[in-house]
Design a protein around this nucleic acid. Structure first.
Length: 278
DNA sequence: TGCCAGGCTTCAC
DNA sequence: GTGAAGCATGGC
């Protein structure tokens, strides 16, 4: 069905580094696997005067409403967020303009936890490869028009793998972290969904109690898996931006409630241009 | 081919 | 509490 809305640039979202299971296909369409769901999106057009993107979503209205509107955060007004940017902050203004069309996805907490444990000291293409291997190894098979795809494996599935199998996914030294996290979640000791009720600080502490989860990984899981929009993950790109552009500190208070969204614009801008802007 | 990747743990000091 | 070494492997 045809979907038309502002601030939905599927190409930028695919390349934004927040989700690892979204890909551009050879026919110019995009696919995404989310829980047991698969979606193909074909960009149709963009109207510069209205800022409206038109896309063909390969799903019915019920699935759009129940699955994809929440996933793509389609009820949030990003134009409003963008309008809140301090116009004297030339760097942030430029970053937001560059990344306009990115949205913060509402992804599965368990998948985010494992994905970002994998992410440490890996490039984004390498992260995607590992996650695909892991999913193909023990995730549910999804039959799609574009071939077989695999859902991200449940905790019990990963907990049931031998560490040797995990290493076949190219996880390296992270294999033991993932094995341990999966066992703690599968056993019920670590309630990866239940901790969503905790306030930010306690949620972060809880996540960091897992081996292989430091502050940066916890912040990514919080932002992309638990929708904690004040979470502001600082990786090498963000650190560079903060050091160069905000020597006296980033004005978090100005963007209270959605700082993580600003973080995502900055990350995309820094990484995509691969340039240090002075 | 060598370098680096959306960092973390461990261990000095 | 802070800083530096070591880490497995894939992608460019």
């Amino acid at each position: 069905m045809l979907v038309t809305m502002k601030d939905f640039d599927v190409m930028k979202i695919t390349n934004s580094g927040q989700c690892f299971r979204m890909n551009e296909l050879e026919d110019g369409s995009f696919e995404v696997v989310h829980n047991k769901h698969y979606l193909n999106i074909t960009p149709v057009g963009y109207d510069e005067t209205t800022g409206l993107f038109s896309m063909e979503f390969d799903c019915d209205e019920a699935e759009l409403d129940s699955v994809w509107k929440p996933y793509f955060d389609m009820e949030t007004d990003y134009e409003l967020m963008v309008s809140m940017v301090d116009e004297d902050d030339l760097f942030l203004s430029k970053a937001v303009d560059y990344g306009r069309g990115i949205r913060i996805l509402n992804q599965d907490p368990w998948e985010m936890l494992i994905s970002f444990i994998i992410s440490q000291r890996k490039s984004i293409p390498a992260i995607k490869t590992s996650i695909e291997r892991l999913s193909a190894m023990c995730g549910e098979v999804l039959k799609t028009k574009h071939g077989l795809r695999y859902a991200f494996p449940e905790p019990e599935k990963i907990a049931g793998l031998a560490e040797e199998q995990l290493k076949e996914c190219g996880l390296g030294y992270r294999a033991s972290y993932i094995a341990e996290a999966a066992k703690r979640v599968a056993s019920g000791e670590f309630d990866v969904y239940g901790i969503n009720k905790l306030p930010d600080e306690e949620l972060r502490e809880s996540l960091m109690s897992l081996k292989g989860v430091g502050k940066k990984v916890a912040d990514c899981v919080m932002l992309f898996g638990y929708r904690r929009l004040d979470s502001f993950p600082v990786d090498v790109w963000i650190k560079r931006a903060l050091d160069e552009k905000y020597p006296t500190g980033f004005p978090f208070e100005k963007y209270s409630g959605y700082g993580g969204i600003m973080q995502q614009y900055i990350f995309f801008y820094m990484r995509d241009t691969k340039t240090i802007w002075k």
